[in-house]
Design a protein around this nucleic acid. Structure first.
Length: 106
DNA sequence: ATACTATGGTACG
DNA sequence: CGTACCATAGTAT
């Protein structure tokens, strides 16, 4: 189909619009793409050819969990914390604090 | 067409 | 609050 840009390409464009210190949920991105493609969004990040150009580390789950990262979940947490995002670290799990307040609006 | 997945939501204890 | 199970959407092979 004309599908100018695969779903995956749209995800990257949206991700690049996220400013530092903000985070977005997969559902948020999927919703902006016009559907419930939560999985497709994560899939796109996994296929992401440029994990640094695209701030895929600013994407978290809607339940506040960090999720995963191409370079390692620990790396993702470190990046988020360094950007000023508050993370609630437990024993071996981490979740976003005040996610709704740090959520970026497209 | 089938399998897999960086999820989400609801249910249960 | 934490864990479990199911449903949903899209990509890759």
């Amino acid at each position: 189909m004309d599908s100018n840009k695969s779903f995956n390409e749209k995800c990257y464009s949206l991700l690049m619009q996220i400013p530092r210190g903000k985070v977005v949920t997969y559902a948020d991105i999927a919703h902006h793409l016009g559907g419930k493609a939560y999985q497709a969004v994560g899939n796109a990040m996994a296929s992401n050819p440029t994990p640094i150009i695209v701030p895929c580390h600013r994407v978290v789950n809607s339940n506040g969990a960090i999720g995963k990262f191409a370079l390692g979940t620990a790396k993702k947490i470190a990046l988020l914390k360094e950007e000023g995002i508050l993370i609630d670290e437990h024993k071996d799990s981490a979740k976003i604090v005040n996610l709704d307040k740090q959520r970026h609006t497209f």
